[in-house]
Design a protein around this nucleic acid. Sequence first.
DNA 1: TCAATGGAGTAATACGTATTAGTACGGTCG
DNA 2: CGACCGTACTAATACGTATTACTCCATTGA
Lengths: 340, 340
Amino acid sequence: MGRVRRMPRQADIARVAGVSQATVSVVLGGNRTGVRLSEQTRLRVLEAAERLGYVPDPVAKRLASSRNNLLGLYTFTPAFPVDVADSYYPILAGVEAEAAALGKDLIMFTASSAVPDRIRRTRLADGCLFLGRHVPVDGIADLLAAGFPIVYIGRRTELGGRIPHVGADYVSASAEVITRLARAGHTRVRYLREPDDAPSSGDRERGVRAAAADVGASLVVTRTDGPDLDAASVRRWLADGVTALVVEETDTGAVFHATWRALGEAGISVPGDVSLAVLGRPPEGTPGPVISGFEVPRRALGRAAVRLLASLVEPGAGEPSLHRLLTCPPVVGETIATVA
Amino acid sequence: MGRVRRMPRQADIARVAGVSQATVSVVLGGNRTGVRLSEQTRLRVLEAAERLGYVPDPVAKRLASSRNNLLGLYTFTPAFPVDVADSYYPILAGVEAEAAALGKDLIMFTASSAVPDRIRRTRLADGCLFLGRHVPVDGIADLLAAGFPIVYIGRRTELGGRIPHVGADYVSASAEVITRLARAGHTRVRYLREPDDAPSSGDRERGVRAAAADVGASLVVTRTDGPDLDAASVRRWLADGVTALVVEETDTGAVFHATWRALGEAGISVPGDVSLAVLGRPPEGTPGPVISGFEVPRRALGRAAVRLLASLVEPGAGEPSLHRLLTCPPVVGETIATVA
DNA sequence: TCAATGGAGTAATACGTATTAGTACGGTCG
DNA sequence: CGACCGTACTAATACGTATTACTCCATTGA
């Protein structure tokens, strides 16, 4: 009674039903290969399996057939970060929801500098999502070369653009923000962005520059990660004739926070004295007016990435496009004023 | 160049190094079984492995050795719920942090009514955590019988208490709240709890009842899930001489929300007109004063559960205790007034 | 009566690694 | 000079399932 009972396997079913293990495998596999089987045998096998409470061993299944219904999720920071407002959160929620909808399980890998080969462990899954600003080029290249299906969440240009990804169309969305400002009469704009060179930053800048050129607005770009932004800087910009600030959205919200604080300290009212737009949304829980900008469809990103990965794992049904950009719906907000 | 290159396996290394696959396995496994090997052979094998970029196949490894460095996490609701304030969140963060610290990967299973046998898939991992109010008794019993290591997060009484778990000591913490109220002079207490019968609810009630009996306080228990709570109920209680309300904390915070709303509608001030304590913490983001109660050490729960599971997976080092309760630190708060 | 046909199921093998029993060989000792 | 021993490996097998080529048997047709 107290003994450890092994889980039943196909061989046990075979013994009970008086057939071979191969027959059991065929029956339970739905006989997709067209082996001749009598209905009675089929039923006997099914009944025995039922009685023994058989459940296939996923490991063996995977070893034998190279398919597992398992999708990997590789993150470079903890997937459950301590600060709940983390911007990855909705993406992960989307990933999980879609994976559940497709009947796939999710296996999570967190990068660890202590274990450099961690990335290869992803091969336990049928395919793997990658989430994070960073790209470990060597590891990814190996996986790609081995034909292992991967999908990056976020646009990626590394490895000659051969990395499948699902990203947000920051270029268009950022351009639209500038256009919106121009329509409101803003032609002198200060643009604050991260020093970091990630595609998501670069895309925003390209969109901003292109639109500024298009509408004939003057644009000055400042690279900052926040701390050096103070009331004096902001006052100087306004003195120079700037009427609108455009701030990049980042993981941490550092740049936005710094800007908002500097504006407060300088006693500058928004949008009374200056208009403000975020290339995205301000960090969760920021008090004050609804900031103008655009929505990053994070949840949809997660879902779309899972769908793409699933289609890569499941061959056939035509080669899906390996790159996909989702549009970011504009947020009107209350921080863009019309100027003469 | 574009060809799909297979990952190298031990057999490939063996060919290159001029030895057998078995030898490769022994060398790469650190020769823990004490096979005699010459140093030169060892180096040749290691060098070949290095040159070929060998990485062990985790699936085969698991099949052969029944150990995988993989811990399962089974949840009955999505692990990344849409409402970020979810109370499971810190638990999951703790689970992930500790798993990462131990070098284990995490595989997530979300219960799905569509796939009833989902629970057995947990066997892909070396062991599995369960998180949720619900216990699928049959599935769990099977896993236990098969000797599969599992740990519930939250105290569990099902199956004769044989389910290993890590929980919070709600009994003591709840008792302490009543004691605190009594010390402040409150002897007529109304206790609001969920209709649902989960151990976490029952434990709180036992603690509350025991302490009330101990200090000689009169106690009336109301089971509610919120909607039927209105201003009139609250007024009636006060009219009956009640000076303190004690509210159970739940996943959704429904009972607390309803109580808080009813108090507001009735124009009753806290703690001026009535004292209020939560058996836990109110939902994240609730405005108003700091509610008295206790902290549920969720993050620590997650960590402790992972540690227990890891010790179950890793046999030896003595049998660990299968049940563990963490203490809940009291939160003084501002909602308990002293009465004459 | 023999070949051809078709139905029912199985033997064999692959997947990649871990483990254990065993082999081959050279040297030493009595 | 054979028994014995230590060294350095390897053959064989297990893990549990999927796949495919094959066998065996009963009919049918000429």
